[in-house]
Design a protein around this nucleic acid. Structure first.
Length: 505
RNA sequence: GGCGCUAUGGUGUAAUUGGUUAACACGCUGCCCUCUCAAGGCAGAGAGUACGGGUUCGAUCCCCGUUAGCGCUACCA
């Protein structure tokens, strides 16, 4: 029964899909059994670490919907939760390991060992630390220390088999003979990853270590450290790697993979969560893949997690996002759209009228949007209606070449010329009159109307578009919206100047 | 070089853990609906389970090899 889980990111970059999935699995596993999740920041590599990333990572995890009980932001009984502030703890345990003889000081030079390793590699021979300093006497050690020889602390690896339990790979066994005595503490006093991770997981009483399978080969080394420390072993679960479409490890090269990016795009957190959970895991046969956070927690089973690597497919994420976008409370999408349109400079002062209007826009354009930031792009007919340019469009020209099309445009213009008509309320009757005057119906009626009013041959229903045009035109917007009369006049004028109405009469 | 992990349609996964016409979702194609696109509904194409050997009456499933990809083999994490 898991009672303490952990997610331990390095603050060396933004949180991307692969790491986020590890966090999600930890969270789901903890949630499912009522365990605690702790966030620990692995910043022993000072050169690459940046606290800016730490903050960003936590913010993005929260946005995703995850929560944790202990961490750098909220403290907890096993802190501190940043490795950079735990130096004393690592030093203390290293000291006792040294005292027990489970570890020893090594004065071998980094350059010399590196040379040997490279040489061995070149000649195709297996190489591990030969144990030169293993049997230095206490006196020798003291003397070299006094002469301030740089030294590292190494674990004295015992011989024999090393075994541990892995929830996704099963029982794992390695031969300790293949691992050279690993360095625990570097010559600059900083702990190495394997050592710090063990000291932290052990002292934080982590019961289940759920992490990427790039650590699988490190685990025997870590198990040996647990043993030396005399600590009980946690249960492990090594998760497969997440790959990009080209089947290489997901990275910046694949572009948009950070959570922040998807968040900025207007992807809903529940969609990302759903999509991330399906990377290497699937619900039972009879269950839908569309699962709310609560359902995910209930269904998740870490022992059903796949052992093989998974390609992250952004199309499937968008599929989930379209679904959740349609299902979510409209006001959520509207508020998001308002914020986005503001960033784009298409909105300034937002009063209730504007809010209501954006609501209409969202309702009309939402079906078919992968994510909300597409809204301005998918609705160009609102802000950029240019009749002259529209007439260059192949699709538009095709519509206008329909027999009677020019007559429809003409009739619509005549109808709208009547100033007293309320375009929105009387739209059905306006269409009726155009129908009567032009003698066209069905697509031959609606297509020319659509083209004349929107400049495009496709888009949401005219019944939805007309109120958006009319309403939008009365709003104070940085980029004014043209109303139907302005549109038809401009379009008709452009047709005239291009000689497209000459054959009507 | 050594050690380890992995391998089911294009993608993610299923297959009561040896008996199925190998299932579902995304994507793709087509049809219906419809003023158009999208949405929605319906249908279809697409794998014989990396390859080769075993074991078995029978292997996606068990065993052994091979190949490929990946990881570790660092005073990176």
């Amino acid at each position: 029964m898991p009672n303490r889980l952990r997610f331990a990111p390095s603050p060396t970059g933004e949180l991307h899909v692969g790491n986020a999935r590890t966090a999600v699995f930890n969270w789901l596993f903890a949630k499912k059994y009522g365990g605690a999740l702790v966030i620990r920041i692995e910043d022993t590599d000072r050169a690459r670490s940046d606290s800016r990333f730490e903050e960003l990572i936590c913010r993005n995890l929260k946005w995703l919907g995850l929560d944790w009980q202990e961490g750098p932001d909220c403290g907890g009984p096993f802190g501190p939760y940043r490795q950079s502030s735990r130096a004393a703890i690592y030093a203390r345990h290293a000291g006792s390991l040294l005292e027990k003889g489970s570890a020893y000081r090594c004065f071998c030079s980094e350059e010399e060992l590196g040379r040997q390793a490279r040489e061995a590699r070149r000649t195709g021979v297996a190489w591990k630390y030969p144990g030169i300093c293993r049997s230095l006497s206490a006196g020798e050690v003291a003397q070299r220390l006094k002469d301030s020889h740089p030294s590292v602390i190494r674990l004295r690896v015992r011989s024999g088999a090393v075994a541990f339990q892995d929830l996704v790979h099963g029982e794992m066994t390695f031969d300790s003979a293949v691992v050279g005595d690993p360095i625990l503490v570097r010559s600059n006093g900083m702990p190495t990853y394997n050592y710090a991770a063990v000291v932290d997981d052990g002292s934080m009483k982590i019961s289940h270590v759920v992490r990427g399978d790039d650590h699988l080969s490190n685990t025997p080394r870590q198990v040996l450290i647990y043993e030396a420390l005399g600590w009980p072993l946690p249960v492990f679960a090594h998760l497969s790697t997440i790959l990009g479409p080209d089947r290489t490890r997901l990275s910046k090269r694949h572009g948009a993979t950070s959570l922040q990016h998807f968040r900025d795009q207007g992807v809903l957190p529940e969609a990302l969560l759903n999509s991330l959970t399906l990377l290497g895991w699937a619900p039972g046969e009879d269950q839908s893949e569309i699962l709310s956070p609560e359902e995910l927690v209930a269904s998740f089973d870490i022992e059903r997690v796949s052992k093989s690597s998974a390609v992250f497919d952004v199309h499937k994420l968008y599929f989930f996002n379209r679904h959740y976008l349609k299902a979510c409370e409209p006001s959520r999408a509207v508020e998001w759209a308002i914020a986005h349109l503001r960033r784009e400079g298409l909105l300034e002062v937002v009063d209730s009228g504007v809010r209501q209007w954006v609501g209409q826009v969202v309702e009309a354009f939402l079906p078919g949007l992968d994510h909300l930031s597409q809204i301005a792009r998918k609705a160009p007919q609102l802000w950029s209606f240019e009749a002259a340019r529209a007439l260059q469009d192949e699709g538009v020209r095709q519509v206008l070449s329909l027999p009677g099309a020019a007559g429809v445009v003409e009739a619509l213009r005549n109808q709208l010329a009547q100033e007293e008509r309320d375009v929105v309320r009387e739209w059905p009757s306006i269409v009726g009159s155009v129908k009567a005057a032009s003698g066209q119906k069905g697509r031959k009626l609606f297509h020319p109307i659509r083209v004349a009013l929107t400049g495009r041959d496709s888009g949401p229903e005219l019944d939805k578009l007309v109120p958006i045009f009319e309403g939008g035109s009365r709003l104070e917007l940085p980029h004014p919206i043209k109303d139907c009369r302005a549109r038809i006049d401009e379009f008709h004028g452009a047709m005239l100047s291009q000689g497209l109405t000459s054959r009507i009469h």
